[in-house]
Write a protein that binds this DNA or RNA. Sequence first.
DNA 1: GCACGGCCTTGATCCAAATCAAGGCACCAG
DNA 2: CTGGTGCCTTGATTTGGATCAAGGCCGTGC
Lengths: 244, 244
Amino acid sequence: MPVLDLRQDKRAMSHPRLPYLERIELFAPLPERSRARIADIAGLQRFSNHGYLFREGEEPDFIYCFVEGGIALIGGADGQEAVIEFFGPGESVLLPAALLGLPYLVSGRATSDGQALLIPAGKLRQLIDEDVALAAQCARVLSRHWRALISQIKEIKTHGAAERLAHFLVSQTGKSKGPATLVLPGMKKEVATRLGIKPETLSRTLKKLRDYGVDTEGDTIRIASLERLAALTSATAGQDQADT
Amino acid sequence: MPVLDLRQDKRAMSHPRLPYLERIELFAPLPERSRARIADIAGLQRFSNHGYLFREGEEPDFIYCFVEGGIALIGGADGQEAVIEFFGPGESVLLPAALLGLPYLVSGRATSDGQALLIPAGKLRQLIDEDVALAAQCARVLSRHWRALISQIKEIKTHGAAERLAHFLVSQTGKSKGPATLVLPGMKKEVATRLGIKPETLSRTLKKLRDYGVDTEGDTIRIASLERLAALTSATAGQDQADT
DNA sequence: GCACGGCCTTGATCCAAATCAAGGCACCAG
DNA sequence: CTGGTGCCTTGATTTGGATCAAGGCCGTGC
């Protein structure tokens, strides 16, 4: 259980937290004056792997901006949990719940040790009505998140497991050509539900992708050619093989 | 092909369009002064059923705010098209693409005749950096959209076809108890892909739901008890029956 | 009136992924 | 070293939904 310990020493200098703010996409482009206002109300919080930072149904107290490490956003009741998306350094979560003052739709579980900036939801809601730069930047970040979810829904509705996995791996590398190596952003179990499949299926599907130049070693994955893998995103990935 | 005809008679009164703006969730809560600025750049556009208003990949020229009638947001290439979501009166689409200046991720096809307000993307992007009220309201509307998509992803990843259909029907009524009647927001074919299933499966699943008090007649659906239907959202909807 | 073309339903069959069921392996704690 | 306890893989089997294949039921145009 992460215990809160954000000491809001407004009287003292808030500057010590400013360098962190600069690493968050939500705040980086803001004018210094706006960032300072945020720094005044922000607190830094450590968290450790597999711990829950917040849970579905709770009232929104904070938004979380990841400085180091990250979490999986998890939806659904016990036994039927599914990872919606992974978030890591520079990204923030829960802005929608905070702005609307509605209960969280998802839980957040750490996928590594790390630190996050916590911004009180109430204060943020207040600031957003006074600070154009902040409000506009929130709209832009929310827009990016919206597009990411749209892509995921399209993917789920139009592609099979192998294609989804291939696309996911490619997007995780952040590159688009040549060879690449990546580390999965969570346990295989979690990655599976992020893709809308079961762990067993992920295991088997990863094996199928070996024939397309994908090599697995624990949670590290080596891809021989991103082009080749991306190609099968659109093709009928499922032909059989593997005898002998 | 809807031909554009937004005459921006800024010199003349923009007031004739103001009453329309008041019916759009994105603009309704804004102060009069902000709404007037939007009215200055907005144009009204008629569209007819089954026509495309915009297509995936195009550069963002406008956002669309529906005054009457609505569309389906469609993703995926030919033959693999899937409806992401339906939008109707009072709602708006494409704000994310417009704010970021990135190509549309989805196409929009009308599900009825209707009219939409078109707001030029460039102008809007400009206004958002100058008008706090507008920027904050965009953030809130985007937040609501984000939450809707999250709910859909959760649903797809954790529930089977019957449960998803049941939940969809309940949410379409806008109510939560007692009996209800609703009209599907599009062709059955489209509703099916919205739910992530095929038309044949939708047909069969609707039949299964008859035993739970769901009666179908064309695109009109009558539900005996919303509670009963909502109950099976979480249960194992799939037991067999139907002999005799 | 009649033929054609969409949309929807229904039935038969197939298949991708889920489920059920063992192990294997790594990482502790004692 | 030894016995858990998770996580992951692998194999056998089942199943929910897809696919294939007819029709039925409109509208619409000729």
